[in-house]
Amino acid sequence: MGQELLRVDDLHTFFFTEAGVVKAVDGVSFSLDEKEPLGLVGESGSGKSVTAQSILGIVPRPGKVLSGRVLLKGEDLLKKKDSDMRKLRGRKIGVVFQDPNSSLNPLFTVGKQLTDVVRTHFDISKGQAFEKGVGLLKLVRIPEPETRMTQYPHELSGGMKQRVAIARALAGEPEILIADEPTTNLDVTIQAQVLELLKSLQRELNMALMMITHDMGIVAEMTEKVVVLYAGRVAEVSPTREIFSSPKHPYTAALLKAVPRIDKKASLMSIPGNIPNLIEPPAGCRFHPRCKYMTQLCVDQIPPLEDILEHRKVSCHHWKELSLESEMAA
């Protein structure tokens, strides 16, 4: 692995709604190395997207980043002024959103939208920006890029639109690409193509990739390191290849057993209960109401995120006693 590029440190982002304070991200820490493909995994409401928004400084109201640090090459992004952050968004960190149907402005051509971003970040002429736009479309393997530049989003298919959105995210030549569930709204066959594209782009362009997803299949396919979030906290951090065979957190194990596997006959297990209400989350370990290994300690104390092996961290009081590996093999 390369140098550390991004470090998120004890991040707290709360939403101050009328119903109460939603603790969407409550002490999340992880790091992302240069050129590293990282997976950020969790159920809906686990704080994946809010973490990404916090990194970029675009948390929508009534949300607010309360504390923590987001260090990009040692510089704390949370301390930067919005005007400085603006120069950095898209330039250092590119983002691909979930739904290509709504992430492109319907009123402007593909070319206009690409050159807009290009010209936000580079001081070049319209002609040069257009050339760069064509280059970006070629980069995301769109055939006939010159024609596509003059088309409107509704003239393109869903997969094509997502390619355009990826091209737009790459327009500022970012060092980190955040992909927020980029395939959730696509057909299964197109999903595979888009994932393949993201994977090869990550290698070609030597970018770090932050893949936000709830799909363990995508994690296995795309990433080398995975951060498992549960209810706004980190449950486990692990190299991807290890987590599938030896999860250390009961939540990770349960999540993995909820994924269909061709090589095992075991029936799919769902995790009992629901993701907790984040206005009044469970005390202690947030997973304890759904955890079959729960003890009084889990109710009383928040488990720290411990370094357990090289590159592995887990936030569970009982990780030593549990033998989740054998459970996975069953």
């Binding site: 970029l56 675009i58 929508p60 005007s83 603006r86 120069k87 950095l88 968004r89 898209g90 330039r91 590119g94 983002v95 959103f97 979930q98 739904d99 709504s102 992430s103 492109l104 402005n105 319907p106 009123l107 402007f108 807009d116 971003v117 936000t120 970040h121 959105a165 737009r168 995210a169 327009a171 500022g172």
Partner: peptide
């Protein structure tokens, strides 16, 4: 304002004025 392309514009470095006049007003 809540549509994804407005958020996308902000995430990719657009300022308030561009968001208002390029993305919100035309729509």
């Amino acid at each position: 304002r809540e549509l994804e392309f407005v958020q996308a514009a902000r995430a990719l470095g657009a300022g308030n004025r561009r968001i208002l006049f390029r993305h919100i007003v035309p729509n």
